[in-house]
């Protein structure tokens, strides 16, 4: 336990040392790949398959809370995202944004890569339900930090598979948290820094099977679930849920709650911002 705590503290300290949140090399790397983003059977097939599970996590979490707060078990899963303001940070080609928009949320996708945003826009325009001027979906080439200058805040902020690519996770996490309305939700998904994660995502996926382009991941940037929990220690009751890939079914699914080792590789994270805010919204103090 103490070792875990120690490394977590050291990690949080490390987060504060570098300034630029977005790493230029990584943007270039992903821009090269973004044209293949929407090929459901291409390099990103893993992400395409993972997407429904992420949406499920988000939807079910919101449903659980809506049912609890309204004391109404009849609220339908398709209703919980309706008319919410959702921000998708690092939206890439728009995988998550499109799904969330289809569920009726006013979705704003932002990405630091211009070509990702182009791909996302072109793809959405091919869908009669999402093409502009749909009130449900908009994209913007910008960084999360730039959004801080606008007063707009969101009911839900999502950032999927982004954390493991940023240079300054602490500042990135604070930015995301600030963009959430009081009482709103922050959803993250990322990869844990464990030997298993290393074996699966870097050694196997990049080097052996070559499913993902080499250089997509850097092991040292992976963040462990308890590091995230620690970061949000001022928030109540953050939740972590593992994402598990079943190679036989070629499907992702959510690990059982509290499954041993379930969060050793890909995992989802949810935290709710306190309804009444004290201070500037920065979570880590």
């Amino acid at each position: 336990m103490s070792i875990l705590r120690h490394s977590a503290r050291r990690f949080v300290r490390a987060l504060h040392t570098s300034n630029a949140t977005v790493n230029a090399d990584e943007i270039a790397h992903f821009s090269r790949l973004s044209s293949q983003w929407w090929d459901h059977q291409g390099e990103f097939s893993f992400l395409h398959k993972m997407n429904p599970v992420r949406v499920q996590f988000i939807r079910d979490k919101l449903l659980e809370i809506a049912r609890e707060e309204n004391d109404d078990l009849d609220i339908q899963p398709t209703h919980v995202l309706r008319d919410l303001d959702v921000l998708d940070v690092g939206c890439g080609g728009g995988l998550l944004s499109e799904s969330v928009a289809r569920l009726g949320a006013r979705t704003h996708g932002v990405d630091a890569s211009e070509s990702n945003i182009s791909i996302a826009k072109v793809h959405a325009s091919a869908d009669p339900k999402l093409s502009p001027p749909s009130p449900f979906l908009s994209y913007e080439h910008t960084s999360a930090e730039s959004l801080l200058t606008s007063p707009k805040r969101y009911d839900v902020v999502c950032s999927m598979e982004v954390l493991e690519h940023v240079d300054n996770p602490a500042s990135f996490l604070s930015t995301c948290a600030t963009l959430v309305k009081p009482g709103g939700h922050l959803f993250l998904s990322t990869i844990s820094r464990t030997p298993l994660a290393y074996a699966l995502t870097i050694f196997l996926a990049e080097d052996v099977l070559r499913k993902v382009s080499s250089g997509t991941h850097t092991y040292s940037k992976f963040i462990k679930p308890n590091e995230l929990i620690e970061f949000f220690q001022n928030y109540r009751d953050p939740k972590v849920r593992g994402l598990i890939y079943n190679p036989l079914l070629a499907r992702w699914h959510l690990a059982a709650r509290d499954a041993w080792g379930g969060t050793d590789c890909n995992y989802l994270f949810w935290v709710r911002k306190p309804a009444l805010e004290s201070g500037d919204g920065s979570a880590a103090s």
């Binding site: 459901h40 059977q41 097939s45 395409h48 398959k49 997407n51 429904p52 949406v55 499920q56 939807r59 899963p77 398709t78 995202l81 499109e98 799904s99 969330v100 928009a101 289809r102 569920l103 869908d127 079914l249 070629a250 499907r251």
Partner: peptide
């Protein structure tokens, strides 16, 4: 129910499987 594009390969794959 998960906001998927029902015509996409990802959405239909479970049927084939």
């Amino acid at each position: 129910l998960l906001g998927g594009d029902i015509g996409s390969h990802t959405a239909l794959l479970p049927y084939a499987q």
